[in-house]
């Protein structure tokens, strides 16, 4: 049981690392989709069905399509120059971080009391709407500021600039 989790999680990390290191943008987008897919599976295994559904449908599906569409439309003028050093440095960092993380988490999990099963009773719906409606306003604000950011950054260059 735990080994499957470890395989999934390491797969997730390696896929996202490849997404960063890939020279070709298309390969990077695909790697991103794979990593979010694995993440969705992990959500399902940790019985968070709603989170898993959103993860797979939105991130793996919709965003990857957008990425690939834009990459295809735009002329890619060759690979992005990437400095070689990162390739050598990243593995060392990666191993180091994993070691520390494992060490700390082993110590921590021993202390964490297992979460009472139904701490927050109620379905996803009423949790979202009843107890945590304020987050919606927060989400709304984030989306709004994202929209305004796009509007501001991609505005036409008007006369008196």
């Amino acid at each position: 049981m735990a080994t499957l989790d470890i395989v999934l999680l390491s797969g997730l990390v390696l896929a996202s690392a490849f997404a960063v290191l890939a020279k070709d943008l298309i390969k990077a987008a695909v790697a991103l989709a794979v990593s979010s897919l694995l993440l969705g599976i992990v959500f399902f295994r940790m019985n968070a069905p709603f989170a898993g559904v959103f993860e797979i449908s939105v991130v793996a599906g919709l965003i990857t399509v957008l990425f690939i569409l834009t990459i295809a439309l735009t002329r890619t003028e060759g690979e992005v120059r990437e400095s070689k050093t990162v390739l050598r440095v990243f593995p060392v960092f990666f191993v180091l971080f994993i070691a520390i993380d494992a060490l700390v988490m082993k110590g921590l999990t021993a202390k964490i009391a297992t979460l009472p099963a139904a701490a927050e009773s109620g379905t996803f719906g009423d949790v979202l709407w009843k107890q945590r409606t304020f987050d919606l306003i927060g989400q709304l604000a984030v989306i709004l500021s994202g929209v305004f950011a796009v509007l501001a950054l991609f505005r036409k260059r008007d006369k008196d600039e």
Binding site: A141, L144, S145, F148, A149, L151, A152, R155, R157, D158, K159, D160, E161
Partner: peptide, 18 residues
């Protein structure tokens, strides 16, 4: 002289709201 004052104020208000 930056232009797009409305967008600028919108973002500013968003930041203050945040």
């Amino acid at each position: 002289h930056y232009g797009a004052k409305a967008n600028y104020y919108a973002l500013l208000l968003m930041m203050v709201a945040g």
